[in-house]
């Protein structure tokens, strides 16, 4: 699904400049808790979130999330928008609720691919506190 379609489905506005509208995403993830996004999302995703702070942009950067959609008409401040532009992460805002945003995108065929907790790395706890 590309950005032009997403903008139209959600009646959304673009907050960042110089974004190619044919840019497409393959998967969607929805959360307000950033560790959850970092843990379960996959690359080439869009993130639907109700938070608008700079950590959301950082989370997207680290997790290689391609697009962020803010809901309920909530926009981040100009510094946060600037950070997203630097990191080339398009920001969109819709007046819809998080529920309806997810529902409408799902209805039009977008799905969530996600990681399962299937890795079993080694953990060593070397020192406990006194």
């Amino acid at each position: 699904m590309n950005l032009a379609e997403i903008l139209s489905i959600l009646n959304a506005r673009m907050l960042t400049d110089h974004v190619p509208l044919q840019k497409a995403v393959e998967s969607a993830y929805c959360a307000d808790l950033m560790s959850d996004v970092l843990s379960f999302s996959v690359t080439n995703s869009l993130l639907v979130t109700g938070l608008t702070n700079a950590q959301v942009i950082r989370t997207a950067e680290m997790a290689a999330i391609e697009v962020i959609i803010f809901i309920q008409g909530k926009s981040p401040d100009s510094q946060t928008i600037k950070l997203a532009e630097e990191k080339r992460i398009p920001l969109l805002v819709t007046d819809l609720s998080m529920f309806d945003t997810c529902g409408k995108l799902y209805e039009r065929g977008l799905r969530s691919q996600f990681h399962h907790l299937n890795q079993a790395p080694i953990i060593t706890v070397r020192a406990q506190s006194l």
């Binding site: 843990s39 790395p121 080694i122 070397r126």
Partner: peptide, 17 residues
């Protein structure tokens, strides 16, 4: 979820505190 996430993302992880 922070520490579990670090564990999940890495091959070896040690905490000293």
């Amino acid at each position: 979820m922070g520490l579990p996430n670090i564990k999940k993302s890495t091959d070896h992880f040690v905490i000293n505190s």
